[in-house]
């Protein structure tokens, strides 16, 4: 991590001409961790670079950025300027880790150096506030990728953070929608609810995997 707690600290430091963004803490030789350098050439710091740094820092703390973020402080940009700076950021080689994703109503950004693509995908689903899609896409992904049925309690935890009753409500609605008819449920013997997509997984497999995850794994530590 950088010595700087916030982007503001970094900006301040750069403005005072101390441009080396490196970890100066002297660690025991054995424990020395490679210092992370947020940018290679501090003298190139301009508004585009500052935006890039800001996105990296957000990603480091598990947050997505969207285009509107730069209309507020500390950047306080006009819409046009923000768009053109972001456009320029896209073409900067030293910020090739910044990923742009066009959402329904805004442009999302994150650094894939600090945030995984899969996690960003989850955050975008959360940000878009389409709860049906959020649940269905997550379940489909898990059924296809791992493969495993999804513990319904996942949606009550970060980054989804639904309350149990919110989840229940959304899930009841989702079950009625044709476009999500592939989302099915199974219960483990302790009644825990697991969801799966029958596009990617058969019910028999979902059921036995749910039983394994929920009950049997604990009996076979």
């Amino acid at each position: 991590m950088s010595d700087f707690d916030t982007l503001e600290d970094a900006i301040e430091d750069v403005s005072e001409g101390e441009a080396v963004l490196e970890n100066e803490v002297v660690l025991e030789e054995d424990n020395r961790v490679e210092p992370e350098v947020l940018i290679e050439e501090p003298e190139e710091l301009d508004k585009v670079a500052l935006i890039g740094l800001h996105i990296r820092e957000s990603s480091m703390y598990g947050r997505l950025n969207n285009a509107e973020d730069f209309l507020d402080e500390p950047f306080s940009l006009e819409v046009e300027e923000a768009l053109s700076l972001l456009e320029e950021l896209k073409s900067r080689d030293d910020f090739s880790d910044i990923i742009f994703h066009k959402g329904k109503e805004t442009l999302y950004m994150y650094s894939d150096k600090y945030m995984s693509n899969n996690y960003a995908k989850l955050l975008i689903l959360v940000e878009e506030k389409d709860m049906f899609r959020m649940i269905a896409e997550t379940v489909r992904d898990e059924s296809k990728t791992y493969p495993r049925p999804t513990d319904a309690r996942l949606f009550t935890k970060a980054p989804f953070n639904l309350t149990r009753s919110e989840f229940q409500q959304v899930y009841e609605e989702l079950r009625k929608k044709e476009e999500y008819s592939d989302i099915k449920e199974v219960r483990a013997s302790n009644q825990a609810l697991y969801l799966f997509s029958d596009k990617f997984m058969k019910e028999a497999l979902a059921k036995s995997l749910a039983e394994w995850i929920e009950v049997e794994a604990e009996q076979n530590p």
Binding site: D30, G62, Y114, M115, Y119, Y146, L154
Partner: peptide
């Protein structure tokens, strides 16, 4: 240092966290 920095995971050498986390591509409840 190489082993601790790049290779080792957690107990049972589980290499993904049990919850979604920003740095991690994958997670697994178990």
């Amino acid at each position: 240092k190489y082993m601790l920095g790049e290779i080792i995971g957690a107990n049972n050498n589980h290499v993904v966290p049990s919850t979604p986390q920003s740095w991690a591509e994958y997670h697994s409840k178990g």
